[in-house]
């Protein structure tokens, strides 16, 4: 039984997850592009690469903007969280070795203790975000159930991954949970608020263009 489940989640399910993610993302990009062409031509007419990059640059650099300096804890957490969120899954030894096994390709991987710490950082950051939603009234007011669910969806593969790596208990079950939760996370990115990952460069870049080229002002 275990072998069947594992074969599925490690085989076809991975293909399904990556396909849903890439095709879904492409679909979101293309349909949004076409919608914008039809109804928001202003976005294309006023888009300026220089000012778009100027704005994006200021917002992906820690403490470059006024609001980031106003919320130092949030800034540190947000940057650590996003860096670890991307680096760990891609450069974890166990993940690279899976690619090595399947496709005979590999790249440098992180030392396991480093990855271990980074995963804990992700989990602590998730707790921080959770705490914000509970304790800050301006965030609590905006928060709905789906925001908690999405936070849980992000945290799940990392918690289960940490658990599986340390083999605390019920290793096999947790390992399967880890794989499945990771695949679910990948699949929901294009269709939930996690799509901010896809659209960030566009919203930021467009606003940067308007502020820079038309309004001659900063937007950070």
């Amino acid at each position: 039984m275990m072998h069947e489940i594992f074969s599925f989640v490690r085989g076809p399910m991975v293909w399904i997850a990556f396909t849903v993610f890439t095709v879904g993302s492409l679909y979101r990009f293309i349909s949004m592009w076409r919608l914008a062409k039809k109804k928001d031509s202003v976005v294309f007419n006023y888009f300026s690469f220089f000012y778009a990059l100027r704005s994006i640059g200021h917002w992906i650099f820690p403490f470059a903007g006024v609001n980031m300096r106003k919320h130092p804890a949030m800034t540190v957490v947000a940057f650590l969280f996003h860096i670890c969120l991307f680096v760990v899954p891609i450069f974890l030894s166990a993940h690279v070795i899976m690619f090595k096994e399947s496709w005979n390709i590999s790249w440098r991987w992180l030392p396991d203790p480093a990855a271990d710490i980074m995963v804990m950082i992700v989990i602590v950051c998730c707790l921080f975000f959770w705490g914000r939603r509970i304790f800050l009234k301006e965030v609590r007011y905006l928060t709905s159930v789906s925001d908690y669910l999405i936070l849980a969806a992000v945290a799940a593969p990392f918690i289960s991954g940490l658990w599986a790596y340390h083999q605390w208990t019920a290793f096999s079950a947790v390992m399967i949970v880890h794989i499945i939760s990771g695949e679910i996370l990948l699949m929901i990115i294009p269709f939930t608020k996690l799509s901010h990952m896809l659209f960030f460069p566009f919203t930021r870049g467009y606003m940067g263009s308007e502020f820079g080229a038309v309004r001659h002002a900063k937007d950070w």
Binding site: M32, W33, L35, A36, K38, K39, D40, V43, N67, K70, H71, M74, R132, L136, E138, V139, Y141, L142, T143, S144, D147, K193, S195, H196, F199, F200, F202, T203, Y206
Partner: peptide, 26 residues
């Protein structure tokens, strides 16, 4: 008139509340 900007703005907002401090009403 509800185009891509409306859609993306409404979907991309992750309800972080960081805009609050900008608003004099708030």
């Amino acid at each position: 008139e509800g185009g891509a900007r409306l859609k993306i703005y409404m979907e991309t907002c992750v309800h972080c509340g960081l805009c609050s401090d900008a608003c004099h009403f708030y």
